[in-house]
Write a protein that binds this DNA or RNA. Structure first.
Length: 558
RNA sequence: CUGGACAUAGCUCAGUUUGGUAGAGCGCUCGGUUCGGGACCGAGAGGCCGAGAGUUCAAAUCUCUCUGUUCAGACCA
């Protein structure tokens, strides 16, 4: 690409509406441009990167025996009605009607259509296994788009779906995809961890996530250095360090705690260690009032509560719902409540703790497990710093991750819903076992930039970069430099190398800065010594450029 | 959806407190001088001040409504 007559631009200043490093860099470097919240256009350089990422994944998918297809994005709503996911996705699904009033959706993910496609093929056990995949645009009406390409409403996903006769077959198909994912992310040079995750709206038996390590990540990855354990914070089992109590159990005592709404206030007012308090979270689970009690220093994990109650939706309870009980917000304790009460298992191991008295302005101190009443006990808090590995008991570590890929063992959930069956050896009808496997392409692009940049701009890995080389003409009026640079450019193209020629009538500084901003791996500077057949060669991350003869340079790429 | 912030030139922002002729830097156009790290001189183009209503002799500025963007929460590739 010769820059002079190409669609190419960069911005000199940070853009106001892109806060993340990757979003800002990609916009400044002219790879993408936002059209509205969570919707981006992919400009020439950005599209090339997208294609690079796709092709790496495509290669490993094909090697794993998957076949590429392309499904529509515009889908009759009935497919999602049948699977029950119209409700599952709720407001996140884009709904529309065609001119005859037929309900349509823009597909948020394609399990249903792939199951439908599979129905055309599957008659007997001899028709499996197989695996289909696509690169296709998904639409999700995210409640909050943010962080550039990390969380958007329209995005390209590589999604794959495997079809097997039984669980054993699914395990094998899953393993193949899992390996293909590892190879893909390894080849892209991404620093990632694989974690156990919640199956969420997909449902099914198992979910594992590929988390690219990055500070802006929206997920917290919990891992252990001493063993292989790693998990998403939302599902990891919490193992607390056992606390030693020197004092014997005392009798509970009512104390006045005026104007103490939060547990922090109470602890401060009574001069207690916050770990010796129990706080209440008044929740609405599928319309039912549920009060959760956890140690004062911990955070409630809503997903764990849902799992424990086998519920679907959880949120804070409103005043109306709270009024159906004797709970007093701010002074709520597990002693004599007339509603559903769940306590975290840690509470049963605490001694002489403080909790609400269910009277405005009062708490109890020296409360012990024998004093409290509850319906359910479970692990309902987030793991936090200081907790131990569930496998080996060593202290856990924490890091933030961007979920770039996800693999699901779906089991028979969708085949049952879509009536996808086959005849087995004994001619009995059986449900098909499915797996689904996703990679967010734009999100992967963002993750790479988050992990690979400096204060000058993006640093693309060689195999992701939109172009591998960029040739800079220092003096755009110098005939020799122009000639040498153009000849080099032609030679590179003849050798099939992807190369940019910066032939713009700009000063050297502009060209250097742009080359660094857009992150091209190798820079070739054609300057004063061009007439002697010498140019400069520099990797994006190298300290200094080296002089090299044109002959040697061409030998490098031949 | 809840709460906060913001909306003025292509970009980044002043100007709003205390109403009175629309501003800067960068970018862009033309001419000239330059040409190894975002050059310099001169001349220019470019704006329905997010939209609508109101107050006022007069509104970018005050009031109300709406829209958009963004940050903090629940979802996910």
């Amino acid at each position: 690409m010769k820059l002079k007559n190409s669609f190419f631009y960069t911005l000199r200043e940070d853009v106001r509406d892109e806060d993340s490093i990757s979003g800002n860099l990609l916009v400044k470097a002219g790879f993408i441009k936002k059209t509205s919240a969570g919707v981006y256009m992919m400009l020439p350089l950005g599209l090339r990167v997208e294609n690079k990422i796709e092709n790496i994944i495509r290669k490993h998918m094909n090697e794993a025996g998957a076949q590429e297809v392309k499904m529509p994005a515009l889908i009759a709503a009935e497919y999602y009605e049948d699977s029950g996911r119209m409700k599952g996705f709720g407001p996140s699904i884009f709904k529309l009607k065609d001119r005859s009033g037929k309900d349509m959706v823009l597909g948020p993910t394609h399990e249903e259509l792939f199951a439908f496609a599979a129905k055309n093929k599957i008659r007997s056990y001899k028709d499996m296994p197989f695996n289909l995949y696509q690169f296709q645009t998904k639409y999700r009406d995210e409640p909050r788009a943010r962080f550039g390409l990390v969380r958007v409403k329209e995005f390209v996903m590589k999604d794959a779906y495997s079809f097997d006769c039984d669980e054993k077959g699914l395990d094998e198909s899953y393993r193949k995809m899992f390996e293909a994912y590892k190879k893909s992310f390894d080849e892209m040079g991404i620093n990632y961890r694989i974690v156990k995750a919640d199956t969420g709206v997909m449902g099914g038996l198992l979910s594992e996530e590929f988390q690219a390590i990055a500070p802006l990540g929206e997920d917290t990855v919990v891992y252990c250095d001493s063993c292989s354990y790693s998990s998403n914070l939302e599902v990891g089992e919490t193992i607390r360090v056992k606390r030693e109590y020197s004092e014997a159990e005392k009798e509970k005592e009512l104390v006045e705690t005026p104007h103490c709404q939060s547990i922090e206030d109470v602890a401060k007012y009574l001069k207690l260690d916050i770990r010796d308090t129990v706080k209440a979270l008044i929740m609405n689970v599928d319309g039912q009032l549920v009060i959760c009690f956890i140690n004062g220093e911990r955070d409630l994990n809503e997903a764990k509560v849902l799992k424990l109650l086998k519920g679907n939706e959880i949120g804070f309870a409103d005043d109306e719902l709270i009024a159906t009980s004797n709970a007093v917000p701010g002074y709520c304790g597990p002693i004599d409540l007339n509603c559903k009460v769940i306590i975290d298992k840690e509470v049963l191991e605490m001694r002489n703790f403080c909790c609400g008295a269910n009277q405005k302005g009062y708490h109890y101190i020296n409360v012990n497990p024998k004093d409290i009443k509850y319906d359910l006990v479970g692990d309902i808090v987030n793991t936090k710093d200081g907790d131990l590995c569930p496998l080996c008991g060593q202290p856990l570590k924490f890091t933030k991750g961007i979920e770039v890929g996800n693999t699901f063992k779906l089991g028979t959930k969708y085949s049952k819903a879509m009536n996808l069956q086959y005849a087995d050896v004994e001619n009995k009808l059986q449900d098909v076992w499915m797996g689904s496997y996703g990679i967010g392409i734009g999100r992967t692009m963002a993750a790479i930039v988050e992990q690979s940049h400096d204060d000058k701009g993006i640093i693309w890995p060689d195999n992701i970069a939109p172009y591998k080389y960029t040739i800079l003409i220092m003096n755009s009026k110098d005939e020799t430099q122009i000639k040498v640079a153009n000849e080099l450019y032609d030679k590179f193209n003849e050798c099939g190398e992807e190369v940019i020629l910066d032939d713009r009538d700009e000063r050297p500084g502009v060209k250097f800065n742009d080359a660094e901003l857009i992150g091209i791996p190798y820079r070739i500077t054609v300057g004063k010594k061009a007439g002697e057949g010498i140019v400069e060669f520099k990797h994006r991350t190298a300290e200094k450029a080296e002089e090299i003869s044109i002959e040697d340079l061409l030998n490098k790429i031949r």
